[in-house]
Structure formats: C-alpha cells, structure tokens
C-alpha cells in the first residue's frame, strides 16, 4: 500500500519486572493504510494491548519502548514533545480501551465526560459541547435523556457505546479499538460497526481493531494480523486468512470457536 497512515518498524516493548526484563513485544513491523481496518488477534497475553498503548504513547512504567519507530501521517511519534502529544492524542489518534465500560469516571455524568474531551481540545462553549454530545449519543443509539446519568446507571453495553462515541468525538485519523464491542449484543454490535464503516467512509479514518471474536474480525477488518508471544506470525487480507490460514496457530484459533448451528 503506498498511502500509509501508520508505519511501525521493529517495535519492541519491554517490561522491567521483579524477575528481570520481560519483552512483551518482540520487534513487530506493520502498517495501516488510510481508511484501512487492520485486525489484530491472538492469544491472551501475546502483546496486543501493549502495542495499542505504545502507539498512543500511553504505555507506562514498567513498560518501555526499547527499539523501533512509529510514524503516523509522516510524523515521528516517538520524538513528540509532551505538549505535542497532549494535543495529538484524541484529536489525531484516539483509543477505546479494553474493558472500556469500566474506564468512565464514576463521579462524572455522561455529558461531563464528553465535555472534558471536547472542550479541552476544541475550546467550544459548554452549550456547543452539549449539542455535539447529544449528536454523538444519537449516533450510537442512546437517548439524549441519559446524558445526565452517571455511568453506574447505564448497562455495561451502554457504557461501552459511550466510550466509543467519545473516541469519535474529535474525528481522529486513527482509532485504536481494543475489544470495543465485547460487552454488546450482536444487533447493537452490527449497527455500531456499520455506523463506523459509514463514518470511516465519510471522514476517512483508519482503525486498528483488536478482538478475540474472529468471526467479527472477518466481517470488519480489511487485513488481519495474528499475534503469538510478542510476534506477528501471519498478516494477510481477511478473506485469504480465513480461507487459507498458513500458520498452525491461526488454524487452531479458527477451530476452537463454538459456532452457531441453525438446524
């Protein structure tokens, strides 16, 4: 692909633990094109979330990026100043965290969580932020009467949708989604993913999509990367990876899924 948005080369992430150095990500290379959805699947503990956090430079000690480069839209992410990072996060790249439903601040209402992100980055008035928040809630199918509710008053799936809407708020170029729909029923999941496909077409952002749900991955991703113990073992266009998996581990993953039988 010539028009790359994100390019990652030789990325290595280490954890300094009590038992010594543990390399969670062992030198991975991948890129994501403009408007492309790259799926990332793999064993629990293989380093998917670690990659996601490193891309946004949200990794925290004991994690360190010890080698490699990350380039987003021509900009060297690892060289950014703290100031640049603050502005860049959420407006250029945003993230829906794993167990996002628990990542909302319990003492703020839903509107206040939107306001924090929208006002901080755009400086619009509270009234404008409220209008924008209502619009985003409508997009994810939550009545705007719930805007002043606290997170614990919403079901798990509703909270998850709120987090997705916040990630979309500033129309970033790349959205990292770490298990974004695990807490949702399949109908809402389908609606949201189709909505995202549409928004993506309109705004042209790219997505790094992490999930354990391989069937969903096949539906949503353009290409799929399979991770095992800190390395990418297979990267291929979705249809190819499903029809003709090359790596043993990929084959094992596919065969362990309980599938719905309809008769």
């Amino acid at each position: 692909m010539t028009d790359k948005l994100l390019d990652v080369r030789g990325l290595k992430v280490d954890f300094l633990t009590a038992h010594g150095l543990f390399t969670a990500v062992k030198g991975v290379d991948f890129s994501i094109g403009r408007g492309e959805v790259l799926g990332l699947a793999g064993e629990s503990g293989s380093g998917k979330s670690t990659i996601a956090l490193a891309l946004m430079r949200l990794h925290r000690p004991p994690a360190i990026i010890s080698e490699g480069s990350i380039t987003l839209d021509g900009e060297d992410v690892l060289a950014m100043s703290p100031e640049r990072l603050r502005k860049w996060r959420w407006s250029s790249v945003s993230m829906v965290f794993q167990s996002a439903m628990n990542s909302l601040n319990p003492v703020l209402t839903i509107f206040e969580q939107f306001r924090d992100v929208i006002v901080r980055h755009t400086g619009v008035s509270t009234a404008e932020a409220r209008a924008r928040a209502s619009e985003l809630l409508a997009l994810i199918g939550i009545p705007q009467s719930r805007l002043d509710d606290y997170p614990h008053q919403l079901s798990g799936g509703m909270r998850q949708r709120v987090v997705l809407a916040i990630a979309l708020a500033l129309e970033p170029k790349l959205i990292i989604m770490d298990e974004p729909t695990t807490a949702l029923d399949v109908v809402v999941q389908r609606e949201i993913l189709q909505e995202i496909v549409e928004l993506k077409r309109k705004f042209g952002f790219s997505i790094l999509f992490i999930t354990h749900d391989l069937a969903l991955m096949g539906q949503f991703a353009d290409r799929i990367a399979i991770m095992l113990e800190g390395k990418l073992v297979e990267v291929a266009p979705s249809a190819e990876l499903i029809a003709n998996p090359q790596h043993d581990y990929t084959r094992r993953l596919w065969s362990s899924m309980p599938l719905l039988t309809r008769d």
Partner: peptide
C-alpha cells in the same frame, strides 16, 4: 439471529 457475525460476509456499509 440474523446479526450473529458470519466471517465470510464483509460489512461494507451497504445495507447499513
């Protein structure tokens, strides 16, 4: 039941 993901059917926004 109709929304259970089928890996062979790509979501391309058509029919959204």
């Amino acid at each position: 039941l109709s929304a259970v993901p089928d890996p062979k059917v790509k979501l391309d926004g058509t029919g959204a």
